[in-house]
Design a protein around this nucleic acid. Structure first.
Lengths: 342, 342
DNA sequence: TTGAAAGCGGTACCAG
DNA sequence: CTGGTACCGCTTTCAA
């Protein structure tokens, strides 16, 4: 095995032709050897010579040339939406990414930048990705899906609350989070329920379905209960303002959007002299460790993004076996963790 | 302007030859028109015909073919390290990413997967990136830098605590965070200082330099003070365990690694009957909103990852103007926010 | 078992 | 102003 020695810091990287020349064979042979092509028999001595030549020169194949010739790449595109991703989603993406890397895909993340969804689809298509996982704040259209499909993408997958026709879907249904929270509060006998709606724009895409789910849960219940949206900014003064108006709102419970907003609001309510859960029950979402440190300990809707089949493997399957009917997989598993605050 | 109509869902994406045929011109002309090549004059009528043909066919250029011909791509590689990134770092990467996208680079994030740094460098080199920003948990070696440089990378930039010879560096010196915290505690008259060291492996790369900085700050001071490392897991029982031993440790202050660990530890100390900051001063890092909700309000080392020059623009400059001496830019701006806990 | 050669899709030179 | 054409680096028949 040749040493990885600092090559003559010459001009540019050697090509397979350079390797062939040094090994005294043809470029074809180099390709066979380095790709472990089994359909062709190469003598062991030749193999060794080629390998040594490649190592000596520090040969690195040119991915673009290879995929141009092959007609397809192993690129999976993960466009990041405009919104800064939450921790849960980040973790999911990171896992997906390393899962795909393990299956030997090249993961390309496209940073969100103001582009119309159809423009974006064309930009992505330039890379001829073998699969695309698109978050729903980019609202892929059927036209965009068509472009990507025709560009060679063997799987187009949307990730978010809304499936799109013609694409597979990893469904993250945030409505279920709101519904779980509200059902829990109703079961606890609460009837007048506030639902915090963060005013930070990045949260809108999650807040709206959570509120919708809360509303639906009340409608579906027999109880004579009501839900009210409570705008809140992630700032102490905003929370204090809301807390000071609390008694006039006549609420006996609140689903605080997530644990961070819940902690913010809880503190403000307590400072305003309200007793939790006596006067008002509070539940958050995300089941952060920090919520357990509150007094009373914060109830929360715990969430997991999981799938019976690992998403990376699912994508691999769809890529290897395209043409099937659109698949839907629900990823979000909410579960109420009842603690002291409700 | 032609409509974006659903093309005949035919076989595959058209090539520039198809566009040329439909427009009745040569492939060269198509290339000139679509790239707005200024060195060559094309009649307006031809331009229009080409543009229409391209739109009608839904033509999308093939990025691999283009960069093969060009000999280089506009790909910037952002390998993600093994460790799950913290919120600050995530935000930085996201900003960098969209900054680069705005400058028309294609950002490729490589998910961390168990590879030796030199192997990784060769894998990256296959993509012929124009720049690489490598986090320091991948410990790029001079050999790896050589491979990347010779593969056409016009800027290799390390991101982390340690600059590497031959590469530019965005230095994130976590030691300064520990130093700031400890200097603050010393100024408050504290002399026996604990430093929390999280036991979660993902935090080691940050925790170690923060501890080192804390030690250095004590050494550099005139005070007769000492620092002691306090292993802690991010679990209530671990914090309770530490708190129960607290009095035997004889500490009058603690730098709790970050605000989350600080909140965890604060709660445990208070539950154990200790008074903060009377018995023990506490300071965290990160300046989370939630820390302000604690009683006493949590002091913290606020951090910002900034640079007089936006990192994306800096990379662009290095790419356009390579060959200069290695640059070092310090990104981390720590600043103590003294509240009630210290 | 190996080599020669034809492209993959674009770009850019040079001739017309 | 436009068309023909060589070539970027690699894979893959087809012949030898």
């Amino acid at each position: 095995m040749s040493q990885l020695s600092p090559q003559p810091a010459g001009t540019s990287l050697p090509t397979s032709a350079d390797v062939a020349r040094l090994a005294g064979v043809s470029r074809a042979t180099v390709s066979y050897v380095l790709n472990n092509n089994t359909t062709v028999r190469i003598s062991d001595s030749t193999r060794r010579r080629v390998r040594e030549a490649a190592a000596d020169l520090g040969y690195v194949p040119h991915a673009a040339a290879r995929s141009l010739r092959a007609g397809h790449s192993r690129t999976v595109l993960l466009p990041a939406g405009q919104a800064p991703a939450g921790a849960l989603y980040q973790r999911f993406l990171t896992q997906l990414e390393s899962g795909l890397r393990r299956l030997d895909y090249t993961v390309v993340r496209y940073g969100g930048v103001g582009q119309d969804a159809d423009e974006a689809a064309m930009t992505w298509a330039e890379l001829r990705p073998v699969a695309v996982v698109s978050p729903d704040d980019l609202a892929l259209t059927p036209y965009g899906i068509g472009v990507l499909t025709r560009s060679g993408a063997r799987a187009v997958i949307t990730l978010g609350s809304q499936p799109v026709d013609g694409a597979h879907a990893l469904v993250v249904d945030q409505r279920e989070v709101g519904a779980h929270a509200v059902r829990h509060l109703l079961a606890r006998g609460r009837r007048s329920i506030g639902v915090v709606v963060p005013q930070e724009p990045g949260h809108a895409l999650i807040a709206r379905p959570r509120l919708a789910g809360a509303l639906r849960a009340v409608e579906e219940s027999d109880a004579d209960a009501g839900v009210r949206a409570l705008p809140l900014r992630y700032q102490e003064d905003s929370a204090q303002d809301l807390a000071s108006r609390w008694r006039t709102l006549g609420l006996d419970a609140v689903f605080a959007y997530d644990d961070e907003y819940a902690m913010l609001l809880t503190r403000a309510l307590q400072d305003a002299g309200l007793v939790i859960p006596g006067d008002t029950a509070v539940i958050g979402a995300g089941d952060l460790m920090l919520g357990r440190l509150l007094r009373p300990r914060l109830s929360s809707v715990a969430m997991e993004l999981t799938c019976e089949q690992r998403p990376a493997e699912m994508i691999d399957r769809l890529v290897q076996n395209p043409g099937g009917p659109p698949e839907r997989h629900h990823l979000l598993r909410p579960a109420v963790v009842a603690r002291e605050s409700s």
